[in-house]
Design a protein around this nucleic acid. Structure first.
Lengths: 170, 170
DNA sequence: CAAGTTGTAATCATGATGGTTACAGTTTGT
DNA sequence: ACAAACTGTAACCATCATGATTACAACTTG
């Protein structure tokens, strides 16, 4: 508890609270894309287990299962307990990076930009600045998300296959 | 150290390392915009000290001074040790949200999206997926940043003043 | 010269991320 | 039916980033 002096106004009491919440785009997102690509590329040839995917991504098998769980909840893959081999629920060109981004919950409800939580309502700027910035920051976030809608898993898999084929020619 | 078995390939040794680095858009960004707005709105009427700005933002005065330091390094404000009252170095319409975003170093060099760090180079997908995703994720980040260039401090201050005036009319 | 202010280093508390262990429940091959 | 393999999930841990806080030297101003 800290006593603040505000110009031309009575002294009042103000609580500082720890700024909480964070806003990062988890590596789960790129892991998810990696996983889905593997399911498509290796699905016909071998059993794509969480252990297998752990080997390809370098990410712990439990984390892989968690990510697969998120993708399952989002209706992107189907998995069954005890049975190996997740498979996609729809064609590659119907799955955008944005769908995956949503599935792995990259961004929480507060949005991409973290806002300082305790602007002073006694201050005319403090009680209005949030409102003013909000639409602009939301627009920036939306611009990023819309760009993610422009790429599908089909694009990713195709380009990956091309790189692999190119490797083998050499 | 974990021994991994990769299908049709010899057993090899693999190191798991903690995934490091984070990618969040600090609240320093919105704090910086808040601060700059206060400097413009209150600059003529009173001494806008770090303590004053702390009162308006609800953010610790030391953090305020750190943010002001970043804005000074970026050439957006001028401050002098011992002397209160930061002031802007150029007109409001020459300062975009993107300039402020750059100043407070919201995003490190690795980019907005965090990539899992240890994709397996023995796996054809593992050694190519990074390359494939990179340009797409960079494009998404750029879309967001370009949107930030569309708003200037002049816009923010003008709209804030309008809200304040509207309050006083009631 | 005293009071007020900035610049900055150092330390701390908290929260988020991902690694790891453990195990129950399910599937599959024989 | 049964053992082996696999998934789903909870629980706990280590590490890192953020911002709060204390402290103090250096500078400015009246």
């Amino acid at each position: 508890m800290i006593i603040m002096h505000w110009p031309n106004r009575p002294v009042y009491v103000y609580y500082f609270r720890q700024l909480i919440g964070s806003m990062q785009i988890t590596s789960k997102f790129t892991v998810a894309v990696h996983i889905l690509t593997c399911i498509e590329v290796f699905g016909g040839q071998m059993r794509v287990t969480s252990e297998f995917l752990s080997g390809s991504t370098g990410v712990n098998a439990v984390i892989i299962r968690n990510v697969l769980g998120l993708l399952r909840e989002a209706g992107i893959v189907e998995t069954r307990q005890g049975s190996s081999g997740a498979h996609l629920t729809r064609s590659l060109d119907k799955i955008t990076l944005y769908d995956i981004y949503l599935a792995v919950e990259c961004i929480d409800d507060d949005g991409l930009f973290r806002f300082h939580e305790n602007p002073n309502a006694q201050c005319p700027v403090g009680r209005n600045i949030h409102k003013v910035m909000d639409s602009r920051l939301a627009a920036a976030q939306t611009a990023m998300e819309n760009e993610l809608k422009n790429t599908t898993l089909a694009d990713i898999v195709t380009e990956t296959q091309q790189l692999i084929n190119h490797e083998e020619k050499r």
